[in-house]
Design a protein around this nucleic acid. Structure first.
Lengths: 123, 123
DNA sequence: TCGTATCGATTACGTCTGTAGTCGGAGAAT
DNA sequence: ATTCTCCGACTACAGACGTAATCGATACGA
């Protein structure tokens, strides 16, 4: 619901917390993927901003904080997918599908899987 | 190819130029959708930034410039779709499809259309 | 020819983002 | 009790973004 945008850097933090939570700031820093080699202060700044955006929450445990997501990954993913579809495809999903299909981004396995999903949905 | 990001505001300008080009800055301003009620200087700033990003180009015609896209809408759309899929779905399209399917974002008409597309692709 | 409207360029400025340093307080070690 | 260390909070700062004013040159109307 809280519709502040989550930036790319912030998303990297969210991914860590979605995988495991609650975690301390130090824990989060330790779990950063290799290509995101941030200093601890940077991680803390990002955590503060996510707190301000109400995307995460923290609970004091003695002297330190444990952070956990407030918004679910699924909600976020839905929100962002919708944003893309709204921005580029007039809010309709089909043009995105058609576009990707045209771009040959679908493997044979994908196609089989999609057919299976469609069958399920029809029942 | 030129991979500078196009911002939301800039995208509104691109959409106008994709629909019709070349246009002067004043033309572009006149075609803004109602909810984007920008001043002419704002439009010109955005055009300059798009020029700097090499997303558009301009040609002098006497005292004024005519602006036209350098990147195609399809290329942009492909790029942004890929970006979303990379960011949120590990670079694979299927999870996006499955996600949207779960969210019931597909109408019956969509499903029929998708089946048709799949048939086409298989041949 | 002289003002005036116009155009592109330059400058402005607050917010957001990416990245990080510093400070003050609370625990831990001695 | 005193020092050292670690934590969260605050501050910093450059670049991008949204939005716009101003300036200098130019062309058109009078």
């Amino acid at each position: 619901m809280s519709s502040e945008r989550i930036s790319d850097a912030e998303l990297a933090i969210m991914e860590i917390l979605w995988e495991q939570a609650p975690l301390t700031a130090t824990d989060v820093a330790a779990r950063l993927p290799d290509e995101r080699d941030w200093s601890l202060p940077t991680v803390k700044t990002l955590l503060s901003r996510l707190l301000a955006k109400e995307a995460i929450e923290h609970r004091a445990e003695g002297r330190r904080f444990f952070y956990a997501p407030r918004i679910g990954r699924d909600d976020y993913v839905t929100h962002e997918s919708k944003r893309l579809v709204d921005r580029l495809f007039g809010g309709r999903f089909m043009p995105l599908f058609a576009h990707l299909a045209e771009q040959d981004k679908l493997s044979d396995a994908d196609i089989t899987e999609i057919e299976r999903l469609l069958q399920e949905m029809k029942s």
